[in-house]
């Protein structure tokens, strides 16, 4: 079997994805991928031949990297949902210049943003870029606009809701 740079790139991208799904920390992902590439550069083997499919290799490393417990993910989701709901609850009264349940929109918005800090930190930690330990450069290019989308979606929902309410009035 011939090993082309395309084979290596495809294997790298797939392995990063499957290790991400196993919630392996980004610095470990960089190490694991660099080991594979360094090894097949020495042997001239096809990566799948030497390490198995990316899915199987990533799955085989699970005893080394335990996934975070289910309550960790649940807590993140519940906090993120509460933060999103409270921020939206605050943004509407602010845009419409009226209080919600007798409280200023600023209070709801601030509570939402404070609650959003822990889940944003947890997600950010898992979503860090994977760096190649050999070069210190990112292993897989992430578009610069990717983090923006994360914030743009809730913002767009509030905006669309507000526009809809204004038009209905």
């Amino acid at each position: 079997m011939t090993t082309t740079p395309d084979t290596i790139t495809a294997y790298r991208e797939s392995l990063v994805l499957h290790l991400r799904l196993q919630e392996v920390p980004p610095d470990r992902i960089g190490e694991i991928v660099a080991e594979v590439e360094s090894h097949v550069a020495d042997t001239g083997e096809d990566p799948t031949e030497a390490f198995g499919t990316p899915r199987d290799y990533a799955a085989g490393l699970t005893d080394e990297h335990r996934k975070p417990p289910w309550w960790w993910t649940t807590t993140t989701l519940v906090l993120a949902a509460a933060a999103g709901w409270l921020s939206g609850r605050g943004a509407f009264p602010l845009l419409r210049a009226e209080p919600y349940l007798g409280r200023s929109g600023w209070l709801w918005l601030a509570t939402g943003l404070v609650l959003g800090v822990p889940p944003a930190w947890m997600v950010g930690r898992r979503a860090r870029q994977v760096l190649d330990p050999r070069t210190g450069q990112p292993l897989v290019a992430t578009p610069r606009w990717a983090p923006l989308v994360f914030f743009a979606i809730p913002f767009a929902i509030v905006l669309v809701g507000w526009v809809a309410i204004e038009l209905a009035n």
């Binding site: 694991i32 360094s38 090894h39 030497a50 390490f51 085989g60 080394e64």
Partner: peptide
């Protein structure tokens, strides 16, 4: 390094150890 370890194991008579077994 990894590949040299694999070669040494093979020379020692333990057969060809794949990268997927060795690095873990």
């Amino acid at each position: 390094y990894g590949y040299a370890v694999a070669q040494r194991l093979q020379a020692g008579g333990l057969g060809a150890v794949k990268g997927g077994t060795l690095y873990p």
